[in-house]
Design a binder for these strands. Structure first.
Lengths: 133, 133
DNA sequence: TTCCTCAACGACATTTATTCTCATTTACAT
DNA sequence: ATGTAAATGAGAATAAATGTCGTTGAGGAA
């Protein structure tokens, strides 16, 4: 139930927030831009302002409900955080996005940060690929 | 000599291009935004338009002279391509940027792409870190 | 060297993504 | 039910980047 998630996250359960969370949860495409969410709201006949969509998505990010990705498309996309960390592989020909997880890479990253006197807080790894042959 | 590099890269050796290349080569900070380059030009008393800076940087990217990075600052930064590939570690407290290279990670990336039926063309890896303690 | 031509340029308008402002509305604790 | 602070909607404002267009200049031809 969405309301519970919002309360738990320390956010008032307002209508825009509930709807936006539903949209992100139900979306086929796991990565949605603010515009995508806004259009989906309009199509559903909801009266929500674009500024609110941006505000809510940023709040969701702060609350750890969604993850913001800055691929190199010039705008941010958001993805529900289901707790399973993964990285992304983007096909440069089809646009297809594949999610993957590799424990060795994760470990190496921590080691490298540590070797330089830092603790790893977060990371962003995107592979740009093309189909074989 | 800059003119030679530009000619080799198939670009006319115009004054704005020569100056911008010099600025990128001489910069303390290896990552400069278009605005940074523009300001540096102004300070040096050069009459170059901002649009030209953007155009030239994009051309340099196409010609393989510079690499464009989209960290999550909301704008692109550019770095001279000296041929030595490396990834980046950004300190979330000081903004310090450390470059690193790890052959194991490079190899694992290729393996992962291959496992999914792709060839790795490029990748972007940024570690977000904080000082230990 | 001088001339010609097309690519490159400068100025500025425009677009795109996002944030800000502020008057109004709403969630929800009392 | 009601008060209050937080959230919202509308639209203005900002920032990054690109487009337009008349002018300039690099560099090959004469």
């Amino acid at each position: 139930m969405e309301a519970i998630d919002l309360k738990k996250a320390g956010l008032k359960a307002t209508l825009p927030r509930i709807r936006i969370l539903e949209i992100l949860e139900d979306s086929e495409e796991p990565h949605m831009s603010a515009e995508d969410v806004y259009k989906t709201l309009l199509e559903a006949g909801e009266e929500v302002g674009l500024a609110t969509v941006y505000r809510v998505l940023t709040q969701f990010e702060s609350a750890g409900l969604v993850i913001r990705h800055n691929f190199d498309s010039g705008h941010s996309v958001f993805e529900i955080d289901r707790g399973e960390h993964h990285d992304h592989m983007v096909c440069m020909e089809t646009g297809q996005v594949v999610e993957f997880h590799n424990e060795d890479i994760e470990r190496l990253q921590k080691e490298i940060a540590s070797k330089h006197g830092f603790n790893l807080v977060d990371h962003s790894l995107v592979l740009y690929v093309k189909p074989k042959q």
